[in-house]
């Protein structure tokens, strides 16, 4: 994943301001940042949901503008929005997305994923009857259907109870196998630090801190974070 001088404007407001970022295959990067730092905008640009205003963005070796469909075929996105149709059952949702991604052995793959996220036996229930945690677990299954090489996680723990959070951590743990690249944005310091290989802090549309996790002092990371966030105001001008 390669990002060079990325700018993204909403009207005249720059949500991303010349952001540079590189992430090697198989690495897990967590990006922290306060509200309004541009974390979700960054993940939306990387996952082809919005186009960059300026700069170069390559994901999986493909440009997000010129080869957007190729990028989409390689990525999976888990967000606090589940992208699930409430009036369809869990199985119908997976079947729908599986057909969109042209997944082979769709029935078998769906069953395997439902088992993995602990929803086997509830696959014929409508999503509208699921709890928030169950919906998020199904959303994880949806994102993994086509075995993406790159995962984008946008505040995935939002609204989850402890059981669902633990399950998500378990799934992320199995995804973090050294072959799959994972990019997570969150403002939850505790959960964000747990499994990643690298940590970054984004403030006011730029990455202002980045370190490998083994060089991060977890006990004092909160201070580092607040130093960055406080210092970030100088970029607002």
């Amino acid at each position: 994943m390669r990002v060079r001088r990325l700018w993204k404007y909403y009207g005249h407001f720059p949500a991303l301001r010349g952001l540079d970022l590189e992430l090697e295959r198989g690495r897990f990067l967590t990006v922290f940042g306060p509200n309004g730092a541009g974390k979700t905008t960054l993940i939306k640009v990387l996952s082809t949901q919005i186009k960059p205003s300026e700069g170069l963005v390559e994901v999986g070796g493909h440009d997000v503008i010129d080869a957007a469909d190729r990028v989409r075929g390689q990525i999976g996105v888990i967000s606090h929005n589940t992208y699930l149709y409430p009036s369809l059952t869990a199985f119908e949702n997976l079947r729908f997305y599986g057909r969109m991604y042209r997944v082979s052995d769709l029935e078998e793959r769906s069953r395997e994923l439902l088992e993995r996220v602990g929803l086997r036996g509830r696959e014929d229930d409508r999503v509208s009857e699921y709890s928030r945690g169950m919906q998020q677990r199904l959303s994880i299954a949806r994102a993994l259907l086509h075995e993406p090489e790159i995962m984008f996680l946008d505040e995935p723990y939002t609204g989850l109870d402890q059981h669902a959070s633990r399950m998500l951590r378990g799934v992320l743990d199995t995804l973090h196998d050294g072959r799959r690249t994972i990019f997570m944005v969150t403002h939850n310091l505790e959960e964000g630090l747990e499994m990643c290989d690298e940590v970054a802090i984004q403030v006011a549309g730029r990455i202002c801190y980045r370190e490998p996790i083994d060089r991060v002092n977890r006990e004092h990371f909160g201070d580092t974070y607040f130093d960055c966030v406080g210092g970030g105001h100088k970029w607002d001008s």
Binding site: T48, R70, N81, T82, Y83, Y85
Partner: peptide, 15 residues
């Protein structure tokens, strides 16, 4: 718009 399904649909690698 519910559950932001439109984004889910747009993320699919389809024309």
């Amino acid at each position: 718009k519910e559950n932001d399904c439109l984004q889910g649909l747009l993320l699919c690698p389809v024309d």
